[in-house]
Design a protein around this nucleic acid. Structure first.
Length: 731
DNA sequence: CGATACGGCCAC
DNA sequence: AAACGTGGCCGTATCG
């Protein structure tokens, strides 16, 4: 009876009521957007109920089904319109005669926009199916538009076209001509695609994606399709919106022309727009042209070189970890399952479940499950916590690294390839990991491999890995930027800057506060390091106190006393904050890169004394927190950003050197470290070459650079070059 | 089963 | 209220 009533009620619900109900649900942003689009389409009569919904109550599921149909309709309409409106200066190049005429015109250009269309985003496996080019200075007399945009299909399923081999060989002169500048959006991808077909794309002069990052690192998206509407006023659909998962070779040529032609058209327009803005920042332009653009080639080579993993080792190690995890799992379940209700077994990987069970087991409520802060201090008193920590460490290690990496071998190259994204961070550092639109790719983050996972990475046969770090890179950078004598003198004397600070602060001899013979830190040196890093990262006195095990006033006093002994550094820190507050940005070294922190210019909002916790002032607190954050970011961005420049410049030099030497390659970079692979019969002079590359490619004024070099067959700690040679001579 | 958010944790 | 900067990835939770 109740059911019948419900059913009756449901039938009676009007569409209007249904919309109110559905939109009141807890919908994700993207769902809400879709639902509103459907509502609008239904109200304007574009669409009606979905066939599957006839006779049923109108549901969110039905609305989303309608959305999918609507999207297909819309897509077809958009594509039809795109083809109808194909600009008259867009041309398909489909035969020898047209290609020959194009090549003649290409020879007259000084700069050309280039883009490739491919079967997918695996640059080692997928292939080029078409090439688009924008020739900006070619005019076809009857047309008013200046410039032409061409698409050369080479492997579409249908339509008259030339073969890829023929087109590439005919274009060789153009591709290899450094005198014809190439302008691309995300050139790394296209350089790698040409490389995949054994062709170079030489003479890249501008990458609109990288340039955009220098113009505004806070840009929410660097996709051409997002930048074009924003900065050029040109609407643009993404590949996925237009074609879904259809590979480009299945797209008919009329559609391919208008889509691919638009890519280089927009890239060229964006270049023109960006160039005007760059003329306002000549130092940044110089940096872009001499560092970021040449670096693109280095990145492509480094990524393509790739990694070799010791799969036998990974398998054995993975099994060891699995065995131990199983033991710990059984033990933990034995102790904790009595605190867990429900049919399903207690899930040790579930934070909420474990927090509840553990709290009951130890008889007090845990605030959170943070390993470092909450659990580790209790591990000695509670075996169950020690076990859980070990279990979590092992499952993290195997789940993210030991078991996961072996599955990511590239099917074509049989190697493992990471991505190094030169615009992946706001400060200029590289990020590493998956591409934005390569969710199912084999790419992985090589910059956060823990020590135990690094053991899987081995040098290629007959080679060794040589890691070279910038010794105390960020401190030297700070010494240089601030001009602080205490730091500069330490580096001049070749002594440890932390120990030097400790000696000064504690008024004790340097050797007493430096590292112990075992290599361990003295408490004095360790404290200096903590305070130093805390300052660089803008840590509050509250957190500093927490880390040093002091009360807040003591931590404040400690910091103040230490920095009183380094007045230039203190003044520099203050200047950074003032600069952020006044201009809303800071400069990296030699004004090569900006870090824009617009929140720094906000005016602080008043919070009356005693009202800190008053919810009425929550907005004000959040507002002020944004300003505080910008202040912390300012100094950090100057140091991290300048250090990233040093690393990038050094990579270019390293790459040049590697090209000259048989068997040398750049293997990777981890922020303050470059890793080379070189033949294992290297000499002392070879090591001296690497030392010179590291210390002389980019100077911090008069502050000397330093490097520590290690030789390895397997990625990890390694041995010093001296030990390597001693061992070799002994054998 | 996909999309999204989040806690937690790996690196420098 | 937050309290340390820059990242990426895994597993769970949650939603429909």
């Amino acid at each position: 009876m109740a059911d019948a009533t419900k059913r009756k009620k449901a039938v009676q619900e009007t569409i209007e009521d249904a919309w109110v109900r559905i939109l009141a649900m807890k919908n994700s942003d993207s769902d809400t957007e879709k639902l509103l689009a459907v509502k609008d389409a239904m109200e304007t009569g574009v669409t009606g109920r979905h066939p599957s919904g006839v006779g049923k109550r109108f549901s969110k599921a039905e609305a989303l089904r309608i959305y999918n149909d609507l999207r297909v309709m819309l897509r077809e309409k958009t594509l039809r319109e795109m083809v109808e409106k194909t600009p008259r200066n867009y041309f398909l190049i489909t035969n020898e005669k047209l290609l020959a005429r194009l090549i003649e015109r290409l020879g007259e250009q000084t700069e050309v926009a280039v883009d490739t269309e491919t079967t997918g985003v695996d640059v080692y496996t997928d292939v080029i199916v078409g090439i688009s080019l924008t020739l900006p200075s070619v005019s076809i007399p009857p047309l008013a538009e200046k410039g032409i945009h061409v698409y050369i299909p080479v492997q579409h399923d249908e339509g008259e076209q030339l073969s890829r081999d023929y087109v590439l060989s005919e274009l060789r002169g153009f591709l290899y001509d450094e005198g014809i500048g190439k302008v691309l959006h995300n050139a790394i991808f296209d350089i790698a695609m040409f490389r995949r077909h054994d062709y170079d794309l030489r003479g890249v002069t501008w990458d609109t994606m990288v340039a955009m990052h220098l113009l505004n690192e806070n840009e929410p998206s660097f996709r051409l399709k997002d930048l074009a509407p924003k900065y050029l006023g040109v609407e643009s659909d993404t590949f996925a919106e237009l074609f879904g998962k259809t590979p480009f070779n299945e797209i008919t040529l009329d559609i391919a022309l208008v889509y691919a032609g638009k890519d280089t058209d927009l890239t060229w327009q964006l270049y023109q727009f960006q160039y005007v803005h760059f003329t306002q920042m000549p130092t940044v332009l110089e940096y872009f042209r001499t560092v970021e653009v040449p670096l693109l080639y280095v990145i492509v080579e480094m990524e393509a070189n790739g990694y070799i993993l010791d799969l036998d080792f990974a398998k054995e190690y993975g099994e060891q970890l699995a065995t131990r995890a199983k033991e710990l799992h059984a033990k933990l379940i034995g102790v904790l399952s009595k605190h867990h209700e429900g049919d399903a077994e207690l899930n040790l990987n579930s934070g909420p479940q474990m927090k509840a069970a553990l709290s009951k087991e130890i008889g007090k409520e845990l605030p959170n499950m943070d390993a470092k802060k909450t659990l580790k201090p209790m591990a000695r008193d509670f075996e169950v916590i020690a076990d859980l920590l070990e279990y979590r460490k092992i499952t993290k290690l195997s789940g993210t690294y030991i078991d996961a990496l072996p599955t990511k071998q590239n099917p074509t190259t049989k190697r493992w390839h990471s991505r190094f994204n030169p615009i992946g961070t706001v400060t200029g550092r590289f990020s590493s990991g998956k591409d934005e639109e390569a969710a199912d790719s084999n790419q992985f983050n090589v910059q956060n491999q823990p020590e135990d996972a690094r053991k899987m990475f081995v040098a290629p046969p007959g080679k060794v890995l040589v890691s070279a770090d910038f010794k105390a890179q960020e401190i030297r950078c700070t010494a240089y930027l601030s001009g602080e004598p205490v730091l500069i003198e330490a580096f001049e004397k070749g002594i440890d800057p932390y120990a030097n600070m400790a000696s000064m602060y504690y008024k004790r001899p340097y050797h007493e506060v430096n590292k112990l013979p075992s290599g361990e830190d003295t408490p004095e040196r360790k404290a200096m390091k903590v305070v130093w890093l805390a300052t660089l990262y803008g840590m509050s006195d509250f957190s500093l106190a927490d880390m040093l095990g002091l009360k807040k006033p003591e931590a404040t006093a400690f910091k103040e006393e230490l920095f009183a002994g380094m007045p230039k550094l203190s003044a520099w820190l203050k200047e950074n904050e003032e600069h952020v507050a006044k201009y809303g940005f800071v400069w990296a070294d030699k004004q090569q890169r900006k870090r824009r922190l617009p929140d720094g210019k906000l005016k602080r909002k008043e919070i009356p004394f005693g009202k800190w916790n008053d919810p009425r002032y929550e907005e004000n607190r959040k507002h002020n927190a944004k300003i505080n954050r910008a202040m912390r970011q300012g100094t950090n961005a100057r140091v991290q950003g300048s250090s990233a420049i040093q690393t990038k410049v050094t990579m270019i030099r390293a790459h040049e050197e590697c090209k000259k030497r048989e068997g040398w390659a750049l293997w990777g970079t981890i922020h303050d470290e470059l890793v080379f692979e070189i033949p294992e019969d290297f000499t002392r002079e070879d090591i001296a070459v690497i030392e010179r590359i590291m210390t002389q490619s980019y100077a911090w004024g008069t502050v000397a650079n330093g490097t520590d070099i290690a030789i390895m067959k397997r990625w990890g700690k390694g041995m010093t070059p001296e030990d390597w040679f001693k061992q070799k001579e002994a054998a």
